[in-house]
């Protein structure tokens, strides 16, 4: 059974383009036109990967991401955010009220230098460890105390999207079959 990818983007041409690339490479594609619809589809269909645009009506990519990652069964579903990192931070700053969360997000994103770290960021446990280490809270983490985790996508990809890069990223994240 082929892996399923949910594309959440309000722009039709973008949806057409990405779905073409994905189906060409043997993935099954689901669509949603805005954040709200995206969450509904994701909860119902449990896709293997979610591709999220940031600027969307009804619910933006930021809001959708927050909710998806807090939904049972979707916490570890990888997400590709169709945005540049700085634009994401800017948009997030408009939507997220908590300074603490924003500090964590920018702290994590702005200090990501190596490709390895960037890649590893997608793993929730690593993210948690990284965050706790940085804050000197390893002990706390070891004792198993709950620590707020900022909601980040697994990968940022800025438009215009290169078909080959895109499919390579998808493969890296969820494999082919």
């Amino acid at each position: 059974m082929s892996k399923r990818v949910l594309i959440v983007d309000d722009e039709e041409s973008s949806r057409k383009y990405l779905s073409f690339v994905l189906t060409e490479n043997g993935y099954e594609v689901l669509f949603a036109e805005n954040g709200l619809e995206g969450i509904d589809k994701a909860v119902k269909e449990k896709p293997d990967l979610i591709v999220l645009d940031v600027m969307m009506p009804k619910k933006s990519g930021i809001g959708a991401l927050q909710e998806l990652k807090r939904t049972d069964g979707l916490e570890d579903t990888p997400v590709i955010m169709l945005s540049e990192i700085q634009a994401f931070i800017k948009k997030a700053r408009e939507e997220i009220d908590s300074d603490e969360t924003m500090d964590k997000i920018t702290g994590l994103l702005q200090n990501v230098d190596s490709r390895a770290e960037k890649f590893l960021l997608r793993f929730r446990q690593y993210r948690k460890a990284l965050l706790n280490e940085r804050e000197g809270l390893i002990d706390k983490f070891r004792r198993g105390e709950k620590v707020g985790v900022p909601v980040l996508p697994d990968l940022f990809m800025d438009k215009p999207i290169d078909a080959e890069d895109f499919i390579q990223a998808v493969k890296e994240l969820i494999g082919t079959d």
């Binding site: 973008s14 073409f20 600027m55």
Partner: peptide, 17 residues
């Protein structure tokens, strides 16, 4: 730039197809 990127995305997608 944001507008241009979206447009370019459509053009690039169209070209790819």
């Amino acid at each position: 730039i944001h507008g241009a990127k979206n447009i370019l995305n459509s053009l690039k997608g169209g070209k790819h197809i």
